[in-house]
Amino acid sequence: MQVLNDNNLILLVRATPGSAPAVDALNRASRMLRESSGELVVFFHGAGVEHACAPNAAEWSPLAARGARLEVCRAAWQRRHDDEPDSAFISSSLVSFWHRVASDHQLACCGQGQHASGELPGRGWVIEVTAPPSDPDSREILELVLAGASLELPLAVIFRDHGCSHLTGAEARGWRQLVDFELAELYHCCSEGGESDIAATPLSRDRAERLCETARGVIST
């Protein structure tokens, strides 16, 4: 039987190497290793998988030597590379990521935008989509949600700012399955009267903030 440990942490890194959120992620991971007795897993997804190859891997590999488990999303990696990740990194899956999040790891996130983490107990996880559609990022964010949905986890997706562009036209196609098959709750904080081809529920910014505050974890993309 797995022993639950409140100190276990999983840090999601989607930011490109050299960006401010990526630097923040590295500092945060180092701090977690220093201050926490639990297991630290760093999961690299989307553009964040670029940390798993030279020269960026050299920044992270000392953390592996200190006990951190560095996992790379296999699909995101294979879309960008023909070779294997650096030896300090382990190929993993989004389902494995969510399994850890749902079982015994507290989620922290350093995405392309500012990270956020829910600290109050809530009923599910929130994924904020704030970036405009781009390839393959849009698809990988959707995959992140679908992977959680495959484990029947309670998920809410909030589209805001530039993320509102996902709600119309061809971009909306993949997201629509979340509504059609009740895989996740969809919300948007887009301008009133703005077009949407998906039945996402409009949400005021205040209510969106409250939803994030009460979530078990927030992933900001």
Binding site: R139, L142, L146, A149, S150, E152, R173, G174, R176, Q177, F181, L183
Partner: peptide, 17 residues
């Protein structure tokens, strides 16, 4: 049909339902 409509294969839970 799912791939045509959503551009990706269905989740297993969707198929089972």
């Amino acid at each position: 049909e799912h791939h045509r409509d959503y551009d990706n294969p269905p989740l297993m839970r969707v198929v089972v339902a």
